[in-house]
Design a protein around this nucleic acid. Structure first.
Lengths: 110, 110
DNA sequence: TAAAAAAGTTAGTTGTTACTTACGTTAGTT
DNA sequence: AACTAACGTAAGTAACAACTAACTTTTTTA
């Protein structure tokens, strides 16, 4: 699949319950990957590491090095962007449907 | 996977670009499955039918019978619920982190 | 009643993803 | 320099998801 819109990465990342749980953990505090993993008893640390990469690719978390540790934290801005996206995506679609000739054609074909 | 939270179904449904495109089509007008399918040139009608079921299971679309046709329309309320969910999910997580004993333990272990 | 139209369902295929185990890497410690 | 801690990466696996082709169901029309 081709990710034409950046929000695809965000929605895909959030669709997984485990990643939402991780995001909650690092929402208000920095945490290391090991520490995050310690909060789950049914998954290994590498799995958490892979989830963190998905979250980072979606810009939902950021990280900083601290010696041999790496501290992760949620990126609140991206969540704000998502909310704006959800508010505008279908609204803009509506405008296009009402204005566009292509849409008018579709309506006629109904 | 067990869908403990109803929002799982919503987020999973929206994570698929094709389903968002379908949702946009039926956002401001009712459409039949065939008519929706006619808007895509790279997917068959049964595939659209299956997507519509996913959207309906997530309560993102509703439908009504009209003779042999079935008209689909977006359920705007569910999108409102999603926005509220996104606004509250991490906020409530934060409160629990600050108040809960379990969370305090996690912080200590940092 | 037979045929057509509109739609849903099933079986099977292919691609994707969440996961584990094993390994590699980097930065501090002894 | 060897050792350890923290972390990422790679390979392989099992489950899931998106799709197509073929089939069935329901309603209208000839």
């Amino acid at each position: 699949m081709i990710y034409a819109y950046p929000m695809d990465l965000v929605l895909k990342a959030l669709a997984e319950p485990r990643r939402r749980a991780i995001l909650r953990l690092v929402w208000s505090q920095e945490m290391t990957a090991s520490n995050i993993a310690a909060n789950f008893d049914d998954v290994t640390r590498p799995a958490i590491s892979q989830h963190l990469r998905v979250l980072r690719d979606a810009n939902l978390v950021g990280d900083r090095r601290d010696g041999s540790r790496r501290l992760y934290r949620a990126n609140h801005d991206e969540m704000v962007r998502l909310r704006r996206f959800l508010e505008q995506y279908w609204q803009s679609s509506l405008e296009r449907l009402q204005d566009g000739a292509e849409a008018a054609q579709r309506i006629k074909e109904m």
